[in-house]
Computed example of a mutant assay.
Amino acid sequence: MTETESGEARAITIGVVAESGEGERRVALVPKMVQRLTRRGARVVVASGAGAGAHLSDDDYTEAGATIGEPYDADVVVGVAPPSDAEIARLREGTILAGFLAPLSDQNRISALEKAGVIAFAMESIPRISRAQAMDALSSQANVAGYRAVLLAAQHLARFFPMLTTAAGTVKPAKALVLGAGVAGLQALATAKRLGAQATGYDVRPEVADQVRSVGAQWLDLGIEAVGEGGYARELTEEERAEQQRKLTEAITGFDVVITTALVPGRAAPKLVSAEAVRGMRPGSVVIDLAGETGGNCELTEPGQVTTAHDVTIVSPLNLPAEMPDHASELYARNIVELLELIIDTDGRLTLDAGDEIIAKSCVAGNDKLSQPEPASGTEDS
Rank of each mutant, 00 (worst) to 15 (best):
A102M: 12
G69I: 13
Y147M: 08
Q107E: 14
A145G: 12
T165A: 14
D60H: 10
Y72W: 15
R109G: 07
M135F: 14
L101P: 04
R148P: 05
Y147N: 07
G41E: 11
T38I: 15
V78G: 00
A137M: 01
A50W: 08
R128H: 10
A120R: 03
M163R: 03
Q155E: 14
D85Y: 00
T67C: 05
R148A: 14
S105H: 11
I126V: 15
A132T: 11
A89M: 07
T38E: 07
R43F: 09
I88L: 04
V77R: 01
A176V: 15
T38S: 11
P71S: 01
Y72A: 00
G79H: 00
A86H: 05
P82R: 03
M135E: 10
A145V: 13
V76T: 04
S111V: 07
A122G: 05
S84G: 09
L104D: 06
N108W: 10
V80A: 01
V77E: 00
R40D: 13
A112Y: 09
A102L: 14
E124K: 02
E70M: 04
A122S: 15
P103A: 05
D85F: 01
A66M: 07
A89T: 08
R128M: 10
R148Q: 13
I68R: 06
S105V: 14
D73F: 06
D59I: 05
D85S: 12
A42G: 11
P82W: 07
V34L: 04
E87K: 06
A134I: 09
D106V: 06
D136N: 13
I129A: 02
R40M: 15
D58G: 08
E114L: 06
A142T: 10
K115V: 11
M163H: 00
R92G: 11
T62I: 09
F121W: 08
T38L: 08
G169C: 01
T62A: 07
P83V: 04
A145E: 12
A102C: 08
L157D: 03
L138A: 09
I129H: 09
K172M: 10
K175Q: 13
V171W: 11
F100R: 09
E93V: 09
E87Q: 15
A153I: 02
V144F: 12
A89Q: 13
I68S: 10
S140G: 06
A167Y: 02
Q107H: 13
E93S: 14
S125Q: 11
G146K: 05
R131V: 03
N108L: 12
A134V: 10
P162G: 00
A42M: 15
G99E: 00
R109F: 12
I129R: 06
A145P: 13
Y72E: 02
D59Y: 03
P103V: 09
Q133C: 02
T165G: 08
K175R: 15
D73E: 14
V77Y: 01
K175E: 14
D59C: 01
V150Q: 01
K175P: 05
F100Q: 03
R92P: 06
D136H: 07
A66F: 06
A116S: 13
L91G: 14
T38D: 03
S48D: 14
K115H: 13
P71M: 04
G117P: 06
E70W: 01
N108I: 08
G65L: 08
V171A: 11
D73Q: 14
L164T: 04
A47P: 04
P71C: 03
G49W: 04
V80Q: 01
G41F: 12
R90N: 13
R159E: 13
D60V: 04
A132N: 09
E93L: 01
D85C: 00
